[in-house]
Design a protein around this nucleic acid. Structure first.
Lengths: 233, 233
DNA sequence: ACCTGAACACCGTTCAAGT
DNA sequence: ACCTGAACACCGTTCAAGT
């Protein structure tokens, strides 16, 4: 309903309209909505144009092409990641909060994950600023400078992998008919800890892995802060 | 060179050839080769047909469609994952070896990772057998049954995320022109531990994260085996 | 400046017609 | 049974023509 403002339903003839019906912002917004609805592989420029009530060729007055459009969509998503906790909280808490926010930003747009996990962040200034805060948080916690980037990259690998997992069809590896051939797997599957509340299996695996990774990172490279205040219960 | 056997260069007329020029196996093999070469998004059925010296419609005598073809390609890749170490080695060593093999199987076919990370493994019997071995290895190491699946899922999230990272363009987050605005990030980037040998930044991040995760998992849920023989140096 | 409309070379898939 | 060839409804993109 937000796309209809004033008589956008009437057919437009050729030529420049009195007031522009498109803008880069409106296009990027609609693209993200469409990706969320139909998925990255179903998404197409033609489909987006139809959704905007416009000819496909019209979009090229505002975007350089599909790649340019997808890069803009990516920035919208990463803008939702909260990294301010690195300025206020102890290291382990900040990492945990940032990781959760990071994962949730991509879970909010599930279909976009495989689209962006491998594409570069060329010139995304706000994304850089996020990393600045994160690195600074590690530094203040006493981490030796040369080990910060590998630790952050490792965390991101886990976070993005977890976001993909959260989006995958549930019970991806359910033994099903083959249960007799793989009895131990079937038993572990049936017995698995599913938590007590609204947490999904993917949420539980994420918490398990995140806690393990933070503990392992802190343990392997202990800092004064970590030694005096181990945050795991 | 393995695709040319006997005069496959000559043009074929219409009608059934004396000996079949295609087979499901040959098609799947060629599809994986083509994905490796041109990437998942450039890959197309038409392109594959051209590579096989055949009309696109010919493929549909052997495959049900593109989805069926990609599922078959996926099984070829996962077959390369070695999980036998769970039958011979202590838990931490087995997990580390399996994880490395898992990551390498996907790194061997980089362009296939985003293609398969979210798609189901419907009826892939050999994949199930791998999980049977892995779960059994956890069980023998003393893991409580209900915690095994979440731990394995967490490991897989990290492994697949790491494989994607290994494939991404290097220095994805290099500050570049923005170095002045993000001085701490720039310093950490310049100082980062790049190892001494042929290891890439992605390899180092993987080893960092894997060691942390294994240590964290063992520490959080200690088993007799882990307590008596901590394998981290 | 910003939209339409026609065109281009693609894409995955179907199906009748050949042998 | 297994390939060709023509056809279908798509895809991303370009560009002249309108206003």
């Amino acid at each position: 309903m937000p796309t209809t403002e004033k008589g956008a339903t009437a057919k437009r003839g050729a030529g420049r309209p009195r007031t522009a019906v498109l803008s880069r912002e409106r296009i990027v917004e609609a693209a993200l909505d469409l990706i969320d609805e139909v998925g990255a592989e179903t998404f197409s420029v033609n489909l987006l144009a139809a959704r905007l009530g416009v000819r496909p060729s019209s979009l090229y007055n505002h975007i350089a092409g599909k790649d340019d459009l997808l890069a803009a969509v990516q920035e919208v998503i990463t803008d939702a990641i909260d990294s301010t906790m690195f300025e206020t909280q102890p290291w382990a808490n900040a990492v945990a909060g940032w990781a959760r926010s990071y994962r949730e930003a991509f879970i909010g747009h599930p279909h976009a994950i495989p689209l962006f996990a491998t594409s570069p962040v060329a010139g995304a200034i706000r994304t850089m600023e996020m990393y600045e805060r994160v690195v600074h948080g590690f530094e203040r916690a006493g981490w030796p400078l040369q080990r910060i980037i590998p630790a952050i990259v490792a965390l991101e690998c886990f976070i993005l992998g977890s976001a993909m997992d959260a989006v995958a069809p549930p019970d991806l590896f359910h033994p099903g008919d083959a249960a007799e051939h793989v009895p131990t797997l079937a038993a572990a599957f049936a017995a698995q800890d599913r938590g007590n509340g609204a947490r999904t299996e993917s949420d539980i695996a994420f918490q398990t892995g995140l806690a393990a990774m933070i503990a392992g990172l802190a343990d392997r490279d202990p800092t004064p802060e970590q030694r005096q205040a181990p945050t795991r219960k």
